[in-house]
Design a protein around this nucleic acid. Structure first.
Lengths: 193, 193
DNA sequence: TGACATGACTAATATCGTTAGTTAGAGTAA
DNA sequence: TTACTCTAACTAACGATATTAGTCATGTCA
């Protein structure tokens, strides 16, 4: 058995992400990841600062992927159309990458892990930009963004954890929920002209 | 050391709830609860079906407490006023009982654990009633209730896990978010007359 | 070629949850 | 009272997980 299997940091993140998305974040243990890579658990410490370090890398990787997803979702769109597209892209992301999505919480404090904090802030900035472009003043936009984030996160978390009881009509409920928020945002935009 | 410490099921739930609300649901381990009660971990199996069984009791207990909280919040109120009051009661509950609140997810399927499912459904029914009393048709109410639940859950989860970045203006953001949803609900009510 | 850093390894420990089997004590019935 | 039974505690043991410490082979570079 040759030493130096040549595992890279990317391999670790990729393996962890794949397990987390397939079986859930909880199952992306150091043991499982090491097994997937064909090495022993303690060897992972040569790449990653323990389980929390691996989770952190997962969150950074996920944030970058989410950012790209949002950018593509927006494209040339503006205003309500952009928001709708972002919302649906977010839901698709949560479906496709459950583990990465779950890795976003708990979030770090800004001064406690700047790199991770900033990576996670990027997608939010993107949404903020859409609102500001709609003419919504900063002081109001902060509340509206939080409302949108809360709705999306809550919906996707409840959906993933079967919190809605019967799963019938979930798609329609999502659309209706998003429309409801967007209507509120449009009203705020119209109000600020 | 006398056998028969005389621990009751209520003692177990109370101890678990107290630890979960103080230190987080994750810290309400069998070991911690047993320690709190002055017994050894395996002895808990005389009262509870393992960790999952204890979590389940926590969720039932939490649901009952939440139901009472909602009932008191509604009182004689109706419509938007009732919804506002419920929203703030929910947030207060999440602040006061973090562990219980977290124990609500993942939710069981209706046929998989009927007792728990029904206990958790009660508070939702209460909210549904408010909407129906506002004259909103059932077919629409289901989407609006999901939107409201998503917003509240998402907001309180993000708030608890520091997901909002700077914690400034969170109260105002919550109020604004709730108003936004309530406005949508009122519009739907007016639309159905 | 030889020193060194990298990245694998083994060994060992601590914390959990869980199961199996044991036993003391309290209540109950003859 | 005494014997029986059941409850609810216990000890012992195991498997999964993370983590630390210390070892060592291998490839690279001076």
């Amino acid at each position: 058995m040759g030493r130096k299997a040549g595992i890279t940091l990317e391999d670790v993140v990729e393996a962890a992400a794949s397990i987390a998305d397939r079986d859930g974040l909880e199952d992306a243990t150091l043991t499982a990841v090491a097994g997937e890579l064909g090495i022993k658990t303690p060897s992972l410490y040569n790449h990653v600062k323990g389980l929390s370090g691996m989770r952190r890398l997962l969150a950074i990787h996920g944030s970058q992927l989410l950012l790209k997803t949002f950018e593509e979702a927006i494209g040339d769109l503006e205003g309500a159309e952009a928001l709708r597209s972002i919302a649906h892209a977010d839901r698709q992301f949560a479906h496709d990458h459950r583990g990465l999505y779950d890795s976003f919480l708990p979030a770090p404090k800004p001064d406690e892990d700047t790199e991770l904090y900033e990576a996670m802030a990027e997608p939010v900035f993107l949404v903020a930009h859409v609102l500001l472009d709609m003419g919504i003043p900063r002081s109001e936009a902060i509340h509206l963004i939080r409302a949108l984030r809360a709705l999306l996160h809550g919906f996707l978390d409840l959906e993933a954890k079967e919190g809605f009881g019967m799963p019938i009509g979930i798609d329609a409920s999502f659309d209706a929920s998003v429309e409801l928020i967007i209507t509120g945002i449009e009203a705020a935009a119209a109000n600020s002209k």
